[in-house]
Simulated assay, not measured.
Amino acid sequence: MATKTLRRTAAFRALFRALTAGSRGGPSLGKRIAALPRMIAATARGEYDGGLRLALMTAATAYVLSPVDVLPELTLLLFGLADDAVMVTWLAGAVLAETERFLAWEARRASVIPGGVVH
């Protein structure tokens, strides 16, 4: 339970940092969104270790967009919408945190000179 809370807290912090990044010099929202296709491709090629996180983000997106979730919203009104609001907030924070992590991984990878070690 504590691990989930820490992950949720990290996602919310990333969301806040991304929304205030323009004033701090961090990656802009546009750069983060542009990194998504590269992140998915690098994960699919097995170069980037974001598979589980991408799967969770995909599941969250499917949950929010799913027509199965309409019944609780119709019957419970605001309480039914609250779970979607929490999920969308988590998803936004998770996407922002993961794209920040991916951009840092890309920068580290670009600074590595390919070749073998000379003894």
Score class of each variant (00 low, 15 high):
Thr9Glu: 09
Leu76Arg: 08
Leu54Val: 07
Leu96Ile: 02
Val68Trp: 14
Arg53Trp: 14
Ala34Ile: 09
Leu6Glu: 13
Ala110Thr: 01
Ser111Val: 00
Gly51Ile: 04
Lys4Ile: 12
Ala11Thr: 02
Glu98Pro: 01
Val64Glu: 03
Trp105Ile: 01
Leu74Asp: 09
Phe79Ile: 11
Leu78Met: 11
Asp49Thr: 12
Ala97Asp: 02
Val88Arg: 04
Leu74Gly: 12
Leu77Lys: 14
Val117His: 12
Gly26Lys: 02
Phe79His: 09
Gly116Pro: 05
Glu47Tyr: 07
Leu81Asp: 11
Thr61Phe: 09
Arg45Ala: 15
Ala94Arg: 03
Ala110Asp: 03
Ala97Leu: 08
Gly46Lys: 05
Val70Pro: 05
Gly22Glu: 06
Glu73Gly: 13
Phe102Pro: 03
Leu91Ser: 01
Gly26Thr: 02
Thr75Gly: 15
Tyr48Asn: 00
Asp84Asn: 10
Thr89Gln: 03
Val88Ser: 04
Ala92Phe: 04
Leu103Gly: 02
Glu100His: 06
Ala42Asp: 10
Leu56Arg: 07
Val68Ile: 13
Leu65Trp: 10
Pro67Thr: 04
Val95Asn: 03
Asp84Phe: 03
Pro67Ile: 07
Thr75Arg: 15
Pro72Lys: 01
Leu29Ser: 07
Leu29Trp: 10
Gly26Gln: 04
Gly25Tyr: 02
Ala62Gln: 09
Thr43Val: 08
Asp84Arg: 05
Pro67Met: 04
Phe102Ser: 01
Met39Leu: 15
Thr99Phe: 04
Ala44Pro: 06
Ala55Cys: 11
Ala107Lys: 00
Leu81Pro: 04
Thr20Val: 07
Val118Tyr: 11
Ser66Leu: 09
Ala21Asp: 06
Phe102Gly: 03
Leu76Ala: 13
Glu98Cys: 01
Gly22Ser: 10
Ala35Tyr: 03
Arg32Asp: 01
Asp49Gly: 15
Gly26Trp: 03
Met39Glu: 02
Phe79Lys: 08
Met1Asn: 13
Glu73Phe: 09
